[in-house]
């Protein structure tokens, strides 16, 4: 600020009314978070590496026999993916909270519940979707029987959307707490159980040669409910964490 500035001042903007621009604000937030992930790809890789490592534990801990592994593979893959997504949730709002941009997000003249949707979408795109795409690969390691790979990916892709949305409520509630990560898991894990049940149910149906699309539809229904209800709760929890 070494140059004198008084000469270049323009008149302050006249008082205006809140207008549109919500789409632009959401798109900008989406792009900003995606750029941040692209600049630090390590953060996005961590849950994937964790997923692979947890999967490795099971043959070591139980048995390398393909028959036994095949029996537990659907459940193990789903639980491990769920835990990996959970691991990444703590960071969803923490960075923004610490640098103050979360507070600025709350001050935007747009509904907070929709702005956070952009952040949740980035979380799903950088965590849930990669997990869903990676799961079949790990399924091979666990001798997951043929015929359930598509079911695995599809249910994980939709199910992780629920996990991102519901988990964001917990992340919003715990973002201001010093040791929020552990508490976050306790708060949201019970809420993940229906998704897990229908996810593994779909795989069981696919393995039994049955119709698994019905189960996928149920997860889709859960996702729709979460899409409608969770943003309001996320916004409320962020306001509590920031302004008390």
């Amino acid at each position: 600020m070494n140059t004198p500035m008084s000469g270049s001042i323009e008149a302050a903007e006249p008082v205006r009314e809140a207008g549109d621009g919500l789409g632009r604000a959401m798109a900008a937030t989406f792009r900003r978070d995606l750029t941040a992930v692209a600049r630090r790809p390590g953060d996005a890789l961590t849950p994937l590496v964790f997923f692979a490592m947890v999967i490795t534990l099971f043959p070591l801990g139980i048995s390398p026999e393909p028959e036994r592994l095949a029996l537990i593979a659907p459940g193990v893959l789903w639980v491990a993916a769920l835990l990996s997504a959970l691991l990444s949730l703590d960071g969803l709002f923490r960075g923004d909270f610490e640098d103050g941009t979360l507070e600025q997000l709350l001050l935007a003249p747009h509904p907070l519940s929709l702005l956070v949707l952009a952040k949740v979408a980035v979380h799903w795109l950088t965590t849930g979707l990669p997990l869903a795409l990676m799961a079949p690969l790990l399924g091979v390691l666990l001798a997951l029987p043929q015929g359930s790979y598509l079911a695995l990916s599809a249910t994980l892709a939709l199910g992780s959307g629920c996990i991102s949305l519901i988990g964001a409520i917990g992340a919003g509630l715990t973002v201001g707490l010093a040791r929020g990560g552990m508490l976050l898991s306790l708060l949201v894990l019970p809420l993940f159980m229906p998704v897990l049940i229908f996810g593994t149910g779909a795989m069981g149906a696919a393995l039994g040669g049955g119709e698994w699309l019905g189960h996928l539809a149920v997860i889709g229904a859960l996702l729709s409910v979460a899409l409608m209800a969770a943003p309001v709760a996320i916004a409320a929890s962020l306001r509590i964490s920031i302004h008390g």
Binding site: R32, G95, T101
Partner: peptide
Amino acid sequence: DLLANLLYLGHAPGIK
């Protein structure tokens, strides 16, 4: 409407 006219700078820099 208030927020549309407001520029608020808090304690934290608000810079990523």
